[in-house]
Design a protein around this nucleic acid. Structure first.
Length: 463
RNA sequence: GGCGGCGUGGCCGAGUGGUUGAGGCAGGGGCCUGCAAAGCCCUUUACCCGGGUUCGAUUCCCGGCGCCGCCUCCA
């Protein structure tokens, strides 16, 4: 069974499933007003890997990831560009999924949008007010955090310390700087929805409470996101659930930052690289591999150097796939139970060692270490002429890469006719032992950007 | 100020109370190859500092130093 760090308890503990065989998780998704950067890519990859791994172990995974399609940033951008908010949201959501598709992040099983749940949010806020946990001011409705049992649980700080450190200016009518907006009363020109407190829109922290409980029900298994969501976002979500007496997430999981020069990559620091920029330069799989080679909770330094490093490592996997003609593990569903039926069979011992590592708080870095160990053994077996053993190890590599969402490329890619001709010409020259001619042809191919490999079955070119 | 994280070889990055501390990249030597490429074999380099606990600590505890983060929108 998978053991995972739980932010609520600060310890690694077994992931307990509410429903046997079924895993439910809610991951806080994007506010769609800007293109996604590598930090977003990381958290989506981390939870994608969690999902894939649990699927691999035979669980049914329900993965909800919301889209915040109304908030201050969207309104601001719409105003600046003289456009309507839904148009902004739709545009950036499209670009979000485009990037995630390119990273081969599986589409979540449900993608609720905040604006589709306004009524539920109004009901929740009314409920909170009726219970005396919320109060109305001139500009909105606020949750009074000192009415919440255990406020500060996720932040691991008592209410007093949080209050002492609060940097936010307390508005005149807020009873505490930590009280947060559940409902914001309409300002001129903003999109609004009706409510008992007049026209307005919901505060950010409310949507996830309503959407997670609506789609997953009480006591769902896991709630996740980046570490910067721990406080105040997740703390405030939890506060609302506690106030209305709902059993909320049973496990909280947060991933570490992408860093640049040791600093957090973020929109506000403007030190971000977009996913689109990454994809222009290189293989999307290299980023997944880079993410996999670090523990999800650690900061991850992303630079052209670390990406190039990952691309080299990827070459090593692809080289094995080419040598053994491994099937791309991403072509079909990758479920452990099916593995025994794989044509060449797999090394069950390696698979269980892999699972031990993954079950230990999703230690993908150690798991990848094992995969590369298998790559080495597969090559060594092939060198020794032990074909069945090599195939078996290769099939295991493919299976495990598939469990992590890492595609293998056994083919060299499209080779055009002119190149094809040069290759066969060179083969002919080599057969005739005309090496001068063969080398000249290779130079020509290399100049065109090809890598030339003379194998036992003839020459392969690849880019 | 409060709270939390991190500090491992040239780089990235796991892990562990103990004879031989993953893995990738990079470097060196060799094998294979017509020469390469790919691959294989061998190999160089590390646990921030100071105490403590221990037969023994990189791993546990305490104290430093350094870096980063959260406490405000933020994955």
């Amino acid at each position: 069974m998978l053991r995972l760090h739980d932010t609520a308890t600060g310890s690694v503990r077994p992931l307990a499933l509410r429903d046997p065989g079924r895993f439910s998780m809610y991951v806080c998704g994007p506010t769609v007003y800007e293109v996604p950067h590598l930090g977003h890519g990381r958290f989506m990859l981390v939870f994608d890997v969690l999902r894939r791994y649990l699927t691999f172990t035979g669980l049914d995974v329900v993965h909800v990831c919301n889209v915040t399609d109304i908030d201050d940033h969207i309104i601001e951008r719409a105003a600046r560009e003289g456009r309507r908010e839904p148009e902004i949201a739709a545009e950036y959501e499209a670009r979000w999924w485009e990037a995630m598709d390119a990273l081969e992040v599986l589409r979540p099983t449900a993608v609720p949008h905040a604006t589709a749940y306004i009524e539920g949010m109004v009901d929740l806020v009314a409920d909170l007010a009726a219970r005396g946990s919320a109060y109305e001011t001139d500009d909105g409705v606020y949750l009074q955090v000192d009415t919440i049992d255990g406020y500060g649980l996720l932040a691991h700080q008592p209410l007093e310390s949080l209050r002492a450190g609060a940097r936010v200016e307390s508005s005149a009518q807020k009873r505490s700087p930590l009280d947060f907006a559940l409902w914001k009363k309409a300002k001129p020109g903003e999109p609004t929805w009706p409510s008992p407190w007049g026209e307005g829109r919901p505060g950010w922290h409310t949507e996830c409470v309503v959407m997670s409980l609506s789609l997953l029900g009480e006591g769902f298994d896991l709630h996740g996101g980046g570490q910067d969501l721990i406080f105040p976002h997740h703390e405030n979500e939890r506060a609302q659930a506690v106030a209305v007496g709902k059993d909320f997430a049973h496990h909280w999981l947060h991933n570490g930052w992408v860093t640049v020069g040791g600093e957090k990559m973020s929109k506000s620091l403007e030190n971000f690289t977009t996913i689109a920029e990454l994809l222009e330069r290189g293989d999307a799989r290299a980023y997944r591999l880079l993410v996999l080679r670090a523990h999800y909770s650690s900061p991850l330094e992303v630079t052209p150097e670390t990406i190039a490093d990952a691309e080299k490592a990827l070459d090593r996997l692809d080289a094995l796939a080419r040598r053994l003609s491994l099937a791309d593990p991403m072509d079909g569903p990758v479920v452990r139970e099916h593995s025994a039926a794989a044509p060449a069979g797999v090394d069950e011992d390696a698979v269980s060692r892999f699972c031990v590592r993954m079950d230990d708080d999703l230690d993908t870095a150690a798991a990848m270490g094992l995969v590369f160990e298998l790559v080495n053994r597969a090559h060594a077996a092939a060198d020794a002429g032990e074909t069945p053993a090599a195939q078996r190890l290769g099939a295991t590599v493919a299976l495990l890469c598939g469990a992590l969402g890492l595609r293998l490329r056994a083919t060299a890619g499209e080779v055009d006719e002119a190149t094809e001709r040069l290759v066969s010409e060179r083969d002919a020259a080599r057969r005739a032992r005309d090496f001068e001619r063969a080398d000249a042809l290779r130079d020509e191919l290399v100049a065109a950007g090809w890598t030339v490999e003379d194998g036992p079955d003839g020459t392969i070119v690849r880019r």
